[in-house]
Nucleic acid binder design. Structure first.
Lengths: 142, 142
DNA sequence: TATAATTAAATTGTAAACAATATAATTGAA
DNA sequence: TTCAATTATATTGTTTACAATTTAATTATA
């Protein structure tokens, strides 16, 4: 065990994780292009397909993103007519993000995507589950 | 099993992977700031600490990055004096990236970082190994 | 009640990422 | 040999990401 072994790319856990995430997102891209969505826009829509209205900060907690990322992204989704943004009347600091009927319609077409990605990952259901659990274990303790 | 279940964030494998990679990179940031490196610059340096000279495309294959990302990044590292860039004489299309003594010096300080990250991941060595293997399994089949 | 502290979003600035395209050098085929 | 394909890198344009800061609203405290 040499002094600098821990600096070898092949001994890193973070690097394959980083590369893997990046490459899977790239796999999504051609499918998402058909919906005119980027990956980040897509996961934001996922939250809204489940929950008609959320605040920007709730969305940020769900997606591990901050307002610096979300504000321009949400403006983009708004300009496409998929969501609306309005200040809460009860607390003017809060912006409420709501999905539009147009946005809800996309769900149908989006539902075809995950199975197609799943198929090309080459993992057994057990392996996928293991990976899923390990990711959340890391995320929980940051 | 409902029609849209596959669109729930909690049923995605890609999302936790994406979030996990992002959050770990964020963990690196304060340590890398002390070396005046970003994460991507850091993994590029990792390749060069192992291999004194590489072409841009070799580096891209190692890191799963293309010239659109690497060119500006390498110019940055060059401006910091950590690497040099020059065209190959045998084939003028190729750019050779070489680490400088200055760049080599950084290795010493960088060696302290991986252990600190490892400690806060909350994974057993076996879990880390499993995750590592699964990432590479996915990467291999893209 | 006045003011300090906190909170929520937005803004600014920098870097990363990549598709698409451009440029230039090299290789291959007619 | 000439010109078409290929290869390597660079450039352009868009989006992502985030730290740091700003603005505005709300809450807590003196």
């Amino acid at each position: 065990m040499e002094k600098y072994d821990c600096l070898k790319l092949e001994n890193q856990l973070c690097f394959p994780l980083y590369a893997c995430a990046k490459e899977i997102v790239r796999k999504y891209t051609p499918h998402l292009n058909q919906l005119d969505l980027t990956y980040t826009q897509y996961i934001a829509m996922m939250v809204l397909w489940e929950q008609e209205e959320v605040t920007v900060s709730e969305l940020g907690r769900c997606l591990y993103l901050d307002s610096g990322t979300l504000t321009p992204l949400l403006k983009k989704l708004e300009s496409k007519g998929l969501i609306t943004r309005r200040r809460s009347e009860a607390d003017e600091r809060i912006v409420l993000v709501r999905i539009t009927p147009e946005g809800m319609k996309l769900r149908e077409r989006a539902a075809g995507i995950p199975p197609q990605i799943g198929n090309c990952l080459n993992l057994s259901p057990e392996e996928a589950k293991t990976m899923y659990d390990l990711c959340y274990k890391v995320l929980k303790c940051l």
